[in-house]
Design a protein around this nucleic acid. Structure first.
Lengths: 148, 148
DNA sequence: TTCGAGTATAGGTGAACGACATAGGTGTCG
DNA sequence: CGACACCTATGTCGTTCACCTATACTCGAA
């Protein structure tokens, strides 16, 4: 009856982190900001204390990238706590399983500010590339589709 | 006489990929798009054929992130060629050392297009976070600086 | 002609990062 | 009871990339 073990056999092809070819001349690309979960989590905690699972929900809505990986999220939270960027405590009142409630520290708020600045320059960098892409897009079309 | 070996002892502390604390409440953050060199190189080649060293110069100007690492740049070019996204040939006419001239293929142009689309949604994602950060920035100031 | 700076190419290393897997608790509902 | 949603973790392993090293050729200066 129990076929749980068969799961092991179902090794899905791990897909590349950023992009993969899905057909001739057809690609799937995911431009991701490295460690983007960190500023996102700090932001959510700046809006108010929360716990892991709840943060996962909020992240899904904020990032629109599907469910974040719980493993990495909890690891992130613990490491942020280790650095003094967030502080945690177990919720006592709430029913259900114990929740570890996180809140932002002053240091964490400072880091969030630094992230905001860096994200702004990142946006500018991306904008520069996109602008230049727009300038050659027509040429590309002529070269590779018009007379190929 | 030769003290070249002493170099080995001078292990510089490798800095984290994205961020590091440079002082109390002071952080250095680098919001990086993963694999950003790829669309950048494809874009430059879409503007015209080029070779490694020249691309490095252009990338420095385009990305404003300092000199790219040559090792990684050449590796990237070779792997793009392996995937048929760029094509290369040796320059014959030019003076100086032989140069491997790269140019974009149709597949490469398609990938660049895919990157452009993905970068646009990435920008939107970043914008959403920054917008929300703006909404709580004042609260953060009051909480962590006003009355700490 | 020796030297160093500039140009060009390429491999090694290891930390950071993230996708995927697994595991174990609590509470609720049929 | 068993299934399932909720909640918190840890383990593993491939990918990516910053930093380092090595090679070789060109060219002008010492």
């Amino acid at each position: 009856m129990s076929f749980t073990y068969t799961r092991k056999a179902m090794k899905v092809d791990r897909q590349p982190r950023c992009r993969c070819r899905v057909g001739p001349g057809s690609f799937e690309v995911r431009a991701r900001v490295e460690r983007f979960a960190e500023p996102a989590v700090l932001l959510l905690l700046a809006e108010g204390p929360s716990h892991g699972y709840e943060l996962a929900d909020a992240l899904e809505e904020l990032l629109e990238e599907g469910r974040v990986d719980f493993g990495n999220l909890y690891r992130l939270l613990r490491s942020l706590e280790g650095e003094g960027l967030v502080a945690s405590s177990w919720s006592e009142d709430a029913p259900g399983p114990l929740k570890r409630i996180y809140e932002l520290t002053g240091e964490g708020a400072a880091l969030l500010g630094a992230w905001a600045g860096s994200l702004r320059s990142g946006q500018a960098r991306i904008a520069r590339v996109l602008e230049r892409y727009g300038a050659v897009a027509e040429k590309i079309d002529n070269t590779y589709h018009g007379k190929d």
